[in-house]
Structure formats: structure tokens, C-alpha cells
């Protein structure tokens, strides 16, 4: 009854949707803080929802910028729910008080992710350049839990936290988080500028993943997730993901505030506009998307035994550092 995937899907499963690049924070690792883009009206955003529903995209995830900065976010999420879409969001938590949490609940969000970079308040606040942000983020988790919305925690792994991820997991438990995402460091936007200071060396990435995967296996009370395709090259790695390599352009796409589509939030290549272009044409025929789906091994990936599973690692990172989608991921330790 179940088959391996042999063919491309008819549409992405998820659209990661940046409604606005505006944010109340100025984080050191942010990929989008330097971006500027026109924003659409509520009516136009609703038209986008219609498009996504028409193409049977099941999930949208609001990100940013800070999604709660858009005052019409709940008008939009209510509308998306009515159209049968499943809605979630990632927030820094600053604006997520009880009233917002109740509104989130009423709007039927499937889950809300709160970004927390360190279990140590001072470090998190420093990193996010906003005193008090740790407290507000943790409070947001408690408010979500109080109203019965599933919460997740997102941490971008960097020098400030890679040796302390156990504390992040404990913090998640304390605040009834159901899933922790340990995101790979993307080297885009500010993350690129600050990468000397924040990024780990390939060997450190390897050691981190070996340990974190072990912890994941032993942890039963909390889901731990990674989004780094390069871990598929680790010996004995047996997780089954829905696709090999980066999922961007295969399972997900990203929407910019003006409706432009990019493969993911970290690859600034516009492949079309959801309001003005034919979506099927983009999805099936975009040269950029097809290049990402059919990468060719380059450099050290040529002849690498892991290529079949790893597909050169994170395409966004390769592109940010080399300008070529098919070059090996700079985090690769091989």
C-alpha cells in the first residue's frame, strides 16, 4: 500500500510564508533582517490563500520578520483555516501574551514555534539584542500551553549554544514544549556576515550531530528534529525523511511579503510570483527548482559514497557561500 516516492508531487506540502520582513528584534543570525520588500494588502493575502487552497497545499507556516507584527495575521489565519489549510507560525514570542494566545487558539493554529537560542537568559537576550526577550519568549510558551496550543521551540545551532543543547531540551520540558527544532546555521543575511563568529567548523558540526542524534534516540518525552541534510552522511544514520537532500523546492517553497516565490527563505532566487504567474508552470518548469531537484555532484561530492543520501547537503548554504546550487555544503566534514 505504501510505495517509495518515485515522482514529484503536484504541489509543495508547505509554504513558508514571510508576511513581512519587519521585526521588533535585530538578531545576530537573522537571514532576513536586511531584506526589504513591499507588503501586500489583506485582500491580496487572501487571494494568495485562495491560490494555495486551489493547488491543495496542505500547510502554511507564517514566519518573518515577526509574523505577529502584521495586525491582520488572524484575519488571514481564520481565512486560511476556512479554506481548509493547516496553519502554524514561528515567532520570537515578544508579542505573544495571553490575549494573543487565545486568539491563536481560536484561529485553530496547529502549532506555534518560539525561537529560543539559549537556556541562559543573558545569552539569549544578547544574541537577540533585546533585554527581556528570553523572559517574554518563555512566557509565550507558558501562555500557549495555558490555552492548549501545541508549542514547539526553535534554536539555530551556533557557537553560543552547541555545547549546551541539553539545557535547551530541559527548558523545553519545563515549559511543556512538544517538539524542539535544532536548526542548522544557514549563512544567509546577517548569519552570513556574522558567520566567522557564530558558525561551527565542519568537525564541530559532525561532533554536534553525533551527540545530538544519540540524545534524540534516547529521548522519549520530547520530539527532537533537525533540518540539516548533511547528517544523512553520518554512518548508521537511518532516519527516513520524505525526500533526500534539502527539502526546498521538493516539499516546500517560500513566499516573500510581495508574493514572490523563492525555493526557501535562505535562497534569494525568485522563481515567480504567486499572484501574477501560473503556479503549475513555476512548480514543474522553473529551471532553478529543477536544478535543485536534480543536483549534480560537484567537487568532493563526486565519488562520495554518501551522495545518494546527502545530495551535497544544504543547498542554501552551498549557494550562499559559492553562488552554485550544486557545490558541496560548506559544513560537510568529509
Amino acid at each position: 500500500m505504501t510505495n517509495p516516492l518515485t515522482e514529484q508531487f503536484s504541489a509543495p506540502l508547505t509554504f513558508n510564508w514571510t508576511l513581512s520582513y519587519r521585526c521588533n528584534f535585530t538578531c545576530s543570525h537573522c537571514y532576513s533582517r536586511e531584506e526589504q520588500c513591499d507588503e501586500l494588502s489583506t485582500a491580496e493575502l487572501k487571494l494568495i490563500v485562495d491560490r494555495l487552497a486551489e493547488h491543495q497545499v496542505p500547510f502554511i507556516n507564517f514566519g518573518g520578520g515577526e509574523p505577529l507584527i502584521r495586525e491582520d495575521i488572524f484575519v488571514l489565519s481564520d481565512y486560511a483555516r476556512q479554506q481548509g489549510l493547516n496553519v502554524s507560525m514561528n515567532s520570537n514570542g515578544w508579542l505573544l501574551d495571553r490575549t494573543a494566545a487565545e486568539r491563536i487558539k481560536a484561529s485553530g493554529f496547529r502549532s506555534v514555534g518560539i525561537s529560543i537560542d539559549s537556556a541562559e537568559a543573558r545569552l539569549h537576550d544578547d544574541f537577540r539584542n533585546r533585554p527581556g526577550s528570553f523572559e517574554r519568549a518563555v512566557n509565550a510558551l507558558d501562555e500557549l500551553s495555558a490555552v492548549g496550543v501545541r508549542s514547539t521551540m526553535s534554536a539555530v545551532i551556533s557557537r553560543i549554544n552547541y555545547q549546551h543543547f541539553h539545557e535547551l531540551l530541559d527548558l523545553a520540558r519545563e515549559h511543556k514544549v512538544s517538539q524542539v527544532y535544532l536548526h542548522n546555521f544557514k549563512c544567509s543575511g546577517r548569519g552570513f556576515k556574522n558567520r566567522q563568529e557564530l558558525d561551527l567548523s565542519p568537525q564541530e558540526w559532525k561532533d554536534f550531530y553525533l551527540e545530538a542524534l544519540q540524545v534524540k534516540e534516547e529521548t522519549k518525552d520530547l520530539l527532537i528534529s533537525f533540518d540539516d541534510p548533511v547528517i544523512a552522511s553520518l554512518p548508521g544514520y537511518a532516519e527516513k525523511s520524505l525526500v533526500k537532500g534539502s527539502s526546498c523546492g521538493k516539499l516546500s517553497l517560500h513566499l516573500r511579503p510581495n508574493g514572490d516565490i523563492t525555493p526557501c527563505g535562505f535562497i534569494p532566487l525568485v522563481v515567480g510570483n504567486i499572484l501574477h504567474d501560473d503556479f503549475e508552470e513555476i512548480w514543474y518548469n522553473s529551471p532553478v527548482l529543477n536544478k535543485m531537484r536534480n543536483k549534480e555532484a560537484k567537487g568532493k561530492c563526486q565519488g562520495c559514497g554518501a551522495y545518494e543520501d546527502c545530495l551535497g547537503g544544504c543547498t542554501a548554504r552551498a549557494f550562499a557561500t559559492t553562488g552554485d546550487l550544486s557545490e558541496p555544503d560548506p559544513h560537510c566534514w568529509k
Binding site: M1, T2, N3, L5, T6, E7, F9, L13, P58, K240, L242
Partner: peptide
Amino acid sequence: DEGTVILLISGMMHQ
């Protein structure tokens, strides 16, 4: 036996 309907259940896809 190609999958014509996909189901997403707890992060897993079934066809």
C-alpha cells in the same frame, strides 16, 4: 502501485 493519494500522519507520508 503508484501513490495517487498521499496521507500525512505524524510527520510520515503514506501513499
